[in-house]
């Protein structure tokens, strides 16, 4: 218990960010119209691609002669990039549809 509290205190800023982000996430989403559910999910999907940062760090810290780590790290970077690039491009393609028609109305 003491260890846990110490751990949390050691990461107090992180804990703060987590709690505030939870509320922020709820707040930001709660008034979204149904038609945007799919693009929004897709956009959120792209944002958790931020995990790529972790992949870059783990890859960048791997020993250059540890091939298992290099291969795994390479894999992680590819996977993370797929998530980011694919996520944002797919979302943009969905939203492009809405945009086009709006231009016509104007």
């Amino acid at each position: 218990m003491e260890q846990l509290l110490y751990f949390l205190f050691e990461h107090r800023e992180m804990v703060f960010i987590i709690i505030l982000s939870i509320f922020l996430g709820v707040e930001v989403i709660s008034h979204v119209p149904t038609i945007l559910h799919t693009p929004l999910m897709s956009g959120a999907n792209a944002i958790h691609g931020v995990v790529i940062i972790g992949a870059i760090i783990v890859m960048g810290q791997a020993e250059p002669d540890n091939y298992a780590a290099l291969v795994l790290g390479f894999l992680a970077v590819v996977l993370g990039t797929l998530n980011v690039v694919g996520g944002f491009v797919v979302t943009d393609r969905m939203l492009e549809m809405f945009k086009k028609k709006k231009g016509k109305q104007a």
Binding site: S21, I22, L24, G25, V28, A44, N45, H48, I53
Partner: peptide
């Protein structure tokens, strides 16, 4: 940034 992005999507995704 990983923390903010991840938790934001975690909570927004749950609400969605």
């Amino acid at each position: 940034v990983m923390l903010t992005g991840g938790i934001l999507v975690g909570s927004a995704g749950t609400i969605l």
